[in-house]
Simulated scan of single mutants.
Amino acid sequence: MYIDVGGNICIAIRTIVAVFDLDSITASAKNKTGDFLHLAAENARLITVEAESLPQSLILTTQTAYLSPYSSKKIRERLLRWRY
């Protein structure tokens, strides 16, 4: 099964490792998250789903990280819908 993460991009559910809410990242974790995003971008492993939209969530898969304009709550709801 696949879910839409915005920008007409669908990813396989089985490849999703974690979904993070970018607004709720604590100040102490922002540096580490920023370092991760920088490293992923350098290695062409970061995809900004919709460049014109502000990203709300980070979806980490086994191969790639996606910055999605959808909230982590919306992504979670879509994942749960396919689980049952």
Rank of each mutant, 00 (worst) to 15 (best):
D23T: 03
S24W: 10
A44N: 10
I16R: 06
A41D: 00
A29E: 13
A40L: 06
A44M: 01
I13F: 10
F36G: 07
F36W: 14
L37Q: 13
A12I: 01
I13W: 09
C10L: 14
V19A: 10
A27N: 14
S24Y: 15
I13A: 08
C10Y: 13
H38A: 14
T33K: 03
A41M: 02
N8K: 11
K30M: 12
F36Y: 10
T33P: 01
V17C: 05
H38C: 02
G34A: 14
I16Y: 01
L39I: 08
D35A: 15
D35I: 12
N8S: 11
I9P: 09
G34V: 09
S28L: 12
K32R: 15
R14D: 00
T33G: 10
D21Q: 13
L22Y: 11
T15L: 04
S28Y: 14
V19Y: 11
D23E: 12
T15K: 10
D35Y: 13
L22E: 05
I11P: 05
A44H: 01
V19D: 09
A12E: 09
G34M: 08
D21C: 10
L37D: 15
V19W: 12
K30S: 08
A12V: 02
N43Y: 06
A27Y: 15
N31Y: 12
A12L: 08
L22M: 09
S28R: 13
H38Q: 09
A44P: 00
A40E: 03
I25Y: 00
I16A: 03
V17N: 07
H38G: 03
N31C: 09
I25D: 04
A40V: 05
G34I: 02
R14M: 03
I11M: 08
L37Y: 12
N31R: 09
R14K: 14
G34N: 13
A12G: 02
F20S: 00
G7S: 03
I13H: 07
A12Y: 01
